[in-house]
Nucleic acid binder design. Structure first.
Lengths: 211, 211
DNA sequence: AATAAAACCGCATAAACGTGCGGTTGCTTA
DNA sequence: TAAGCAACCGCACGTTTATGCGGTTTTATT
């Protein structure tokens, strides 16, 4: 038996969802709320396995709502329900702690499936939303690529120490080598990265994810 | 009509998939391959809307396979099919250009749905896999937070110029101000960021997403 | 056995940097 | 209207950096 709470301002949709859920044997709706405030107030007294949450709500919006809710109960499984597919909202919701993200036009049987998946540690997403997440993911993961500067591990070490504010002498002490060797490493780093100052080297290294 | 190509080394599964697809009116299997090499060789001669690709393959693996394939046809929609849910493979595949990611135990009707979704620009994912993606996504997106260093826009400007390799004099020329003013700005930047060198300042600024 | 690459060391010097002190102007905000 | 801040300018001075040259040793690859 999966206990579900619903946060949705539209009366018809809210009752429709509740009816859908209560019309099954495996799911039970243990609370319906028309805004986040009332949901949060009652969160202490109940233990939903899954929360269905609308994004657009009067007063506190769904994103803020999730944040507050997971602060109270970090293990909470929140499934966003929305009419929008705009990236910003999607990302904000996911970062705030949403576990899944469905568009409202999702067919009832699929919604029930999704609730089950969420309660079992999955993250069902409407597929167009998933595409957005994947693209964003690729953006951040990407970049690393191709351009290989072949910094040796020693050089990366030196560069790291430089990036946290050490001067040559301090780096030398940290690595038990002489300042001249530090100088030598830095020289090579500059050559490999095609730069001419510590600041530039550090900037490039961080942006290319070398350090 | 959606044209599908299949890359899968296991004979039974491969023919099963082909039969499933050809057993419908809306889908057609236009090619089956037991490895990436033969698939890539034939890619010029065909135009699949969706490619079903196994990850574990003899010879070139599925990840490499995607990379080569999207190099040839960047608009290709590749749907990974796998028994594994290990994060590394998932991320590698997505970065390589996969559009979706399903476990092999996905029921047939759901697989057909997924193929359709992929061809329409969606990214169906098995929900446990989606959870992994979301978690990874949260990790990278996070960090940004809170700590406000209140750099003025002028200071950010200076910091940016420093990060791309300019020395004080060059920054001064770029901004039509004197070197002493540059010095002054940098001084304040150091104070605000609690650092004592250009390298450290640039590193901190980039990592905190200030520039 | 030989070549290459990484890591190490040294010296010299001009240029750049970091930080101390002092100041003015103009805009916003209490 | 006084206080605060951003942006501007100046000078001085010791420290650090960037880059030129020269080298050795160790480890891996051929």
């Amino acid at each position: 038996m999966i206990n579900v709470a619903i946060v949705e301002d539209n009366h018809t949709i809210r009752e429709g969802l509740a009816a859908l859920i209560n019309g099954t044997n495996d799911y039970k709706c243990i609370g319906t709320f028309y805004d986040c405030e009332s949901f949060l107030k009652n969160l202490d007294k109940m233990n939903p396995d899954v929360v269905l949450m609308d994004i657009a709500l009067p007063g506190m919006n769904g994103i803020e709502g999730i944040k507050m809710a997971v602060e109270k109960k970090p293990e909470l499984n929140v499934l966003m329900l929305t009419v929008h597919e705009e990236s910003d909202k999607v990302f904000d919701a996911l970062c705030a702690g949403a576990c899944g993200y469905l568009v409202k036009k999702t067919p009832p049987f699929r919604l029930l499936e999704a609730i089950k998946e969420v309660s079992e540690g999955g993250s069902p997403m409407s597929s167009r939303i998933a595409r957005q997440v994947i693209n964003a993911f690729k953006d951040v993961k990407a970049t690393a690529e191709e351009e290989e500067y072949n910094l040796s591990s020693r050089e990366k070490e030196v560069l790291n120490l430089l990036a946290v504010g050490n001067n040559y002498q301090e780096i030398a002490n940290d690595l038990f080598i002489s300042v001249d060797t530090v100088r030598h490493h830095i020289r090579n780093i500059y050559k490999k990265l095609h730069v001419h100052s510590g600041s530039e080297a550090v900037a490039k290294a961080i942006r290319k994810k070398l350090i």
